[in-house]
């Protein structure tokens, strides 16, 4: 049975988490101007143990943001620039013929950039499906299988991918199975008008911003346990389930927009994502249990890439965001009435 001492420990851990989170955020914001929601989402994915997809037009600082997070946290960071000719062996690693000093040759495994802690998959939709699929095992099971070798990836392991919503010629849209593995999909928008001045000053001046390492991989792993210990009351849990079921056509909680315009709704992995992201938010908001508001707040980035709009919806101009908004409006939180 928990005592008041235990509760004080929990409060202390939650406080430390908030402090570390704000430190990383502040360090990243020294480099990135604005984009507070994007930074929060990326850090949420990092602390919750998920992966994040950043989508936006070129020049908004997506790659810089991920690099900044990689520099602010003392973890191994690698970057992969996805191109159509990139092969799975290029990112996973392959056996290379090495000439020995004493003569002779030996096949030695040379690991690829996927073996890291924080992987920036830049312009992920430019690689072929074959290479994209090489990420599946790494993202879900945190391991890589190359020929008869299985490499366990070190925790924390987080893939932050970027993609460009325009210039779709020559690209390969990610399959649903690949998209589902991302905890969140964040849309990076243009900065606000008053943020442009700061961007110009920071990026075109003589001084360079140096990011300090304010956290470590071990710390992130410790906070992941704290986050997972956040309890979820029945009301929030049921609401999250209703939201996910509400994205599935012909389900009990599906609204008209879903029935008409959605061909594929969110899977149970969507509920897991909602819960994990909501737990992070609850701690950041100074609470020790998940609330319905937390679930609502994270629903859009967690569910938008898990909803597949059908042809009818596309022709009507319905987007996945519209569907999630409609579900949020339609589904009510249980009130035990």
């Amino acid at each position: 049975m928990a005592t008041s001492t235990d509760s004080r420990v929990a409060e202390k851990e939650a406080g430390e988490f908030r402090a570390v989170h704000s430190k990383i955020k502040a360090e990243v914001q020294r480099f990135i101007v604005g984009q507070e929601n994007v930074i929060d989402a990326a850090l949420t994915a990092l602390f919750a143990g998920g992966h994040v997809m950043l989508e936006g037009v070129p020049g908004l600082g997506k790659t810089m943001l991920v690099r900044a997070i990689g520099e602010a946290v003392d973890i191994h960071f690698s970057r992969i620039q996805f191109t159509p000719d990139l092969m799975p062996a290029d990112i996973q690693g392959t056996n290379v013929l090495i000439e020995l000093e004493g003569g002779g040759h030996e096949l030695r495994f040379q690991q690829g950039p996927l073996v890291s802690n924080l992987v920036l998959a830049d312009e992920i939709n430019r690689a072929t499906p074959r290479t994209q699929s090489a990420l599946l095992e790494a993202m879900q099971e945190k391991q890589i299988s190359v020929s008869n070798r299985v490499i366990k990836l070190d925790e924390p392991y987080c893939v932050m991918a970027t993609q460009n919503p325009v210039e779709q010629e020559g690209t390969y849209p990610l399959p649903e199975a690949q998209l589902d593995r991302f905890l969140m999909k964040v849309l990076v928008g243009y900065p606000k008008l008053d943020e442009y001045d700061a961007i110009v000053d920071r990026t075109t001046g003589a001084s360079e911003v140096e990011i300090q390492k304010v956290s470590s991989g071990a710390e992130i792993l410790r906070f992941r346990k704290v986050i997972r210990s956040v309890p979820v009351p029945e009301r929030a849990k049921k609401y999250a389930v209703r939201l996910v079921v509400g994205t599935q056509p012909k389900s009990d909680y599906a609204c008209d927009v879903v029935n008409e315009s959605v061909s594929l709704g969110a899977s149970p992995r969507g509920v897991q994502g909602l819960m994990l992201a909501a737990k992070v938010r609850a701690l950041l908001e100074g609470r020790f249990a998940v609330s319905v508001d937390d679930v609502k707040a994270v629903a859009l980035p967690v569910l938008r890439h898990r909803v597949l709009v059908n042809f009818h919806g596309m022709s009507e101009g319905v987007t996945a965001d519209d569907v999630v908004h409609a579900v949020l409006q339609h589904v009510e939180a249980p009130n035990f009435d």
Partner: peptide, 21 residues
Amino acid sequence: SDRMTAAWEFTNEAHPTPMMQ
């Protein structure tokens, strides 16, 4: 933000976790 509802539920738990407490 559901603080009272959660507390009511957690007070009924036989073995509340530190976070519930």
